[in-house]
């Protein structure tokens, strides 16, 4: 039928124990399983096996992003459609990635790898599936993230990837940033009813800008900032802020390998069909207000530095 969710990001890290400590004790994810090469994590309010994989590497950055489809036959259809579009496709057999079924890996025009798969093993919500206590336990260590919300990947020209994802994979474009010549600088895409599941921004092809963890309230984002500061996690120049784009409460910070993370709260709702609602358009002049609403400027390192 279609892609049903942005399921997980597989990041590369240079120090696995430090990454495990960061994503559990600071970010507040559950460690699901790990070995000496990889670790799998899930947030409290998700029932699938993982929302994050970190793999040991000699560099930081993104290995691939995982999206779940809601019909097994979608995998064949997606692979054929991607191949017809001239994109590299390979089968990922069962067992290559723990906690999920087989899938197809597609290399997007932006040189990012996107894995589509159907089955995820279930670990349930952190509070259980039967008469669960709501909210987050008082014994919980780390920030109160509920789910992996979205990721922003960087590339030299977002347009071909946007065209592919909207025309072939049924993503909708909710907001975009354009230069005076009308060229696309950044694009915010959704395959569900949230404001964005996947965004594309400027930078070298195949690089990773950030991934965002959702929270249930603005207050929990602020609490999250206190935890970051207590744990001496580097945050971006502007502590907590608001994005003009999407109108959400946000803070950026970095994992121990320099991969950018975000805590995020917002309730923006998208219609769920491409081209049904025209996208919001940000011009370059207003882009600083779009990126950092309060500060109305973008630090020079914000888009230059990606992993």
């Amino acid at each position: 039928m279609a892609i049903s969710r942005f399921s997980y990001a597989n990041l590369r890290v240079m120090d696995l124990p430090k990454a495990v400590k960061h994503y559990t004790e600071t970010v507040g994810l559950r460690l699901v399983e790990s070995d000496d090469q990889r670790a799998y994590f899930q947030a409290d309010e998700c029932q699938d096996h993982h929302c994050l994989i970190v793999s040991l590497s000699d560099r930081a950055g993104i290995d691939h992003v995982g999206f779940k489809v809601n019909d097994p036959s979608d995998l064949v259809e997606a692979a054929e459609a991607a191949a017809a579009h001239g994109l590299a496709v390979r089968d990922v057999p069962l067992g290559e990635i723990a906690g999920q079924g087989p899938g197809v890996m597609i290399t997007l025009p932006s040189e990012h790898n996107m894995l589509l798969f159907y089955h995820a093993d279930k670990i349930g919500y952190a509070g259980g599936m039967h008469n669960p206590t709501p909210g987050v336990s008082k014994n919980k260590i780390g920030a109160k993230v509920t789910h992996l919300d979205h990721t922003l990947l960087s590339c030299e020209n977002a347009q071909p990837t946007v065209d592919f994802l909207t025309k072939v994979f049924d993503f909708s474009l909710t907001e975009k940033v354009v230069d005076p010549g009308g060229n696309l600088i950044a694009a915010f895409l959704t395959c569900t009813n949230t404001m964005h599941d996947l965004a594309l921004g400027p930078g070298p092809n195949g690089t990773f800008h950030h991934m965002a963890f959702g929270m249930h309230s603005r207050g929990e984002v602020l609490e999250g900032v206190d935890i970051l500061k207590e744990d001496e996690v580097p945050t971006l120049e502007y502590g907590v802020s608001r994005h003009g784009i999407a109108g959400v409460t946000t803070i950026y910070f970095h994992d121990p390998s320099g991969n950018r993370n975000e805590f995020y709260n917002g309730a923006y709702q998208a219609a769920g069909k491409p081209d049904l609602v025209p996208p919001i358009v940000w011009d370059v002049e207003n882009f600083p207000r779009g990126a950092f609403y309060y500060e109305n400027q973008i630090p020079e390192t914000f888009f230059d530095e990606v992993t």
Binding site: A60, H254, G258, N259, R260, P299, E300, T301, D304, E305
Partner: peptide
Amino acid sequence: LASTCLRGGCGA
């Protein structure tokens, strides 16, 4: 000095 991640990842 220009810096962002302070973790040896971002290249600033």
